[in-house]
Design a protein around this nucleic acid. Structure first.
Lengths: 349, 349
DNA sequence: CCTATATACTGAAACGTTACAGATTGTCAC
DNA sequence: GTGACAATCTGTAACGTTTCAGTATATAGG
């Protein structure tokens, strides 16, 4: 018996990563006391608490994630769920960096959960929930009636959506104000004399399709311009398709003299299509586009841009999820990002 | 005693996620037997094995990661370590998708471990190792003498580098053949009559700086062209700086008539600089650039491109790490990606 | 002086898994 | 019929943590 005890204590003072047992041995306290002292439990004496925390810091104690997770079910993991084929490139990296910034000084890790073509978007969410792999989830490509949000809400798993839903349910989100973007874009185009405008919208199934469309049409009637329908493609289509459709459209008798584009990559395709049709940007037609990094003005100086900050979005989403996990009311964790003005090219000094 | 037993068994058949105990109860076997049956241990009867596996599949048993991790130390996690400020956008998303594809049907999760400005690149690696947070690591921005590779090698942690090292140590890597890229680029430029070439290289501290530079200079002497030094900037510099330096360079008496650019974003800046100086791409100067997505030809048709597939890189890196974890020899897990030819613009049909 | 109560601490059990060291059969040789 | 041995299966302990139900000591109330 006695022998057994000392063996254990010897082990505790041994080589490997320090554990609570190590700390208990070093401080002469029980494992329980150490555990509670580290989390500032009130029933531990103030001096003991300081002593334990000092020793813990000195020897670089870090709680074993598996131990905590097994005992408590807390994973300290946030999962970012991504569509492997449709997500925009810069979106992914910036969102990840934004999330990283926020969770950097928390115990949380970020895991990326991808889902691919033809797969039910609910699959990865189910997996996460069923295996209890994350304390919180961030989802993108949000739909008005989003089964993922509903599912997570039903199970009580904290999450945040990039984009809003429209189901009468309350949950954290971060969104870019695409209504404001579209109205500003239309107003700007009208302001420089453009009258026949086309919108390259997000895909219909996503919530912000409606936002962009409503902003577009509302502003059209406000400024008295007319719409040239351009809904055979969306920003999810391939560069080649958008380019071809744009060229077709621009060869018609009644063609747009202004475009509003909801994504930078799509804008490259629109411009290519315009030029395929033998027309010139800035003379025959103007294009207002969203962009998330400052590249479009290098592409064509005539382009008009509005910036969307995905890094900010990532940070906001992370803050929202952590807030919910921390007990804040879901309804208080919603944010909307206001677009910049429409910006024309400015020569660098 | 008896009462105690039945209570436990009742719990095992209960509501929550199935565990080994649940399976043991359902099959009438011991927990140990079930555990071994699931991993095809030879000392379990063939029929028992099949029976257990059938039941496990039926009720959707999935091993508890925390349990496994606590007991065995195996995390089933691969960590991708990223620099938050210098990594190229498309690089990040494509690498992640490539890695995801490969680990999709393994028990592995992907965690992203970022490190930011001014931080020692070794910090995140140390964290991972000290906390035992991952079974394998993928690192990028590899240097000839890379402390991270050395560190991981010393601790025996499986890893793969994106890019090679030059320390006389053997480890898995995936690299793009930047020597071949540079030589092909120079040959192509010489082939269309360009004689005074400038190289926009990767930053000096990264291994592939030398690869690109060597390929460039070797090919220069092969074709008898001359170098216009352009080493005040690298692809890590800001768009504005590259643009400004390029414009300065193009206003000199002896200016390049050809550029080799190691990154697509930098190429946008080079072209802007060329045009700032009042010169025309394709007439006064040609540019060969690497790109990872097919956007440069939309930008300027005159550009000459070579494709680098980051998704492939991600997949190869993941395969290498998993291979090493699985016991393969590190030396057998190295791969080099051959560049495409230099491609000129081809009109879409 | 004895009982109540607060304070400060502790051991045992449990989370789900695997490794170790058996235990129970049945078969076979002799 | 006995011993040896292989073939199957099993209980216990341990990984590191937190929670539950205490225990010991001091303080105060009567």
């Amino acid at each position: 018996m006695d022998r057994h005890r000392t063996e254990k204590d010897d082990e505790a003072s041994g080589q490997g990563r320090p554990t609570l047992k190590t700390l208990a041995f070093m401080t002469g306290l029980g494992v329980t006391t150490v555990s509670r002292a580290l989390k500032d439990a009130p029933e531990i004496g103030a001096e003991t608490r300081r002593r334990v925390q000092l020793v813990a810091k000195q020897i670089g104690y870090r709680p074993n994630r598996a131990g905590v997770r097994l005992r408590t079910g807390k994973t300290n993991v946030i999962s970012l769920v991504l569509n492997t084929e449709h997500e925009i490139m810069s979106f992914v990296s910036d969102i990840i960096y934004g999330v990283s910034e926020v969770i950097a000084d928390t115990p949380y890790h970020l895991i990326v959960t991808p889902y691919s073509r033809s797969q039910d978007p609910l699959d990865p969410i189910r997996y996460l929930v069923e295996t209890g792999s994350a304390d919180g989830v961030i989802i993108s490509r949000t739909q008005p009636n989003d089964p993922r949000a509903r599912y997570l809400l039903e199970r009580g798993i904290p999450f945040a959506t990039h984009g809003r839903t429209d189901m009468g349910l309350i949950h954290p989100y971060h969104d870019f104000d695409n209504y404001a973007f579209a109205t500003e874009a239309v107003r700007h185009l009208a302001g420089i004399g453009r009258r026949r405008l086309a919108l390259l919208a997000p895909p219909v199934e996503l919530t912000y399709h409606r936002h962009a469309l409503n902003g577009f049409t509302d502003a059209l009637s406000e400024v008295g311009a007319s719409e040239i329908p351009f809904n055979t493609v969306s920003i999810d289509h391939s560069i080649e398709q958008i380019r071809m459709r744009t060229a077709q459209l621009m060869r018609r008798d009644v063609r747009p003299d202004g475009f509003v584009s909801s994504a930078a990559a799509a804008t490259l395709a629109i411009v290519a299509g315009i030029e395929d049709a033998g027309l010139k940007l800035g003379r025959d037609v103007d294009v207002v586009s969203k962009q998330s990094s400052d590249l479009l003005h290098l592409f064509r100086r005539e382009l008009l841009v509005v910036n969307e900050d995905f890094r900010l979005a990532g940070a906001e989403l992370a803050r929202s999820v952590l807030g919910w996990i921390g007990g804040a009311a879901p309804g208080s964790l919603q944010s909307l990002s206001v677009p910049t003005e429409v910006l024309a090219y400015r020569r660098p000094d």
